[in-house]
């Protein structure tokens, strides 16, 4: 009835992991990794977000429907970002397809 009760230690270790990851993010920003700086920062942020969603927000122990909602939000976010990116990424490209007529 009262849902899944996680042990306190789990919450503390997730907190610890998030703090460590934050430190790594800041540290990594001061290292010149060339084009990789931004992807690394975003990858760490995504990992942190995943921890929050799975454990603090209990998605790991939630119903399939809750998981479906999470996936749906990411799916439509991907549509939004992806299709707009498609336009901007191809703006500079000239027309190379042969005209059919």
């Amino acid at each position: 009835m009262s849902g899944h009760v996680s042990p306190k230690s789990l919450y503390y270790s997730i907190f610890g992991a998030l703090m460590v990851l934050t430190a790594i993010t800041v540290f990594a920003a001061y290292v010149n990794l060339g084009a990789m700086n931004a992807p690394i920062a975003l990858a760490i942020a995504t990992f942190k977000a995943t921890l929050v969603v799975l454990f603090f927000m209990h998605v790991r122990y939630s119903s399939r429907l809750t998981k479906l909602v999470v996936v749906t939000s990411l799916f439509f976010l991907a549509i939004l970002l992806g299709e707009m990116m498609m336009d901007y990424a191809s703006r500079g490209m000239g027309v190379v397809l042969p005209t059919l007529q």
């Binding site: 299709e83 498609m86 336009d87 901007y88 191809s90 703006r91 490209m93 027309v95």
Partner: peptide, 10 residues
């Protein structure tokens, strides 16, 4: 003013 390719896809 969207790109030619994205117009095609859309």
């Amino acid at each position: 003013g969207i790109s030619t390719y994205s117009a095609l896809v859309f």
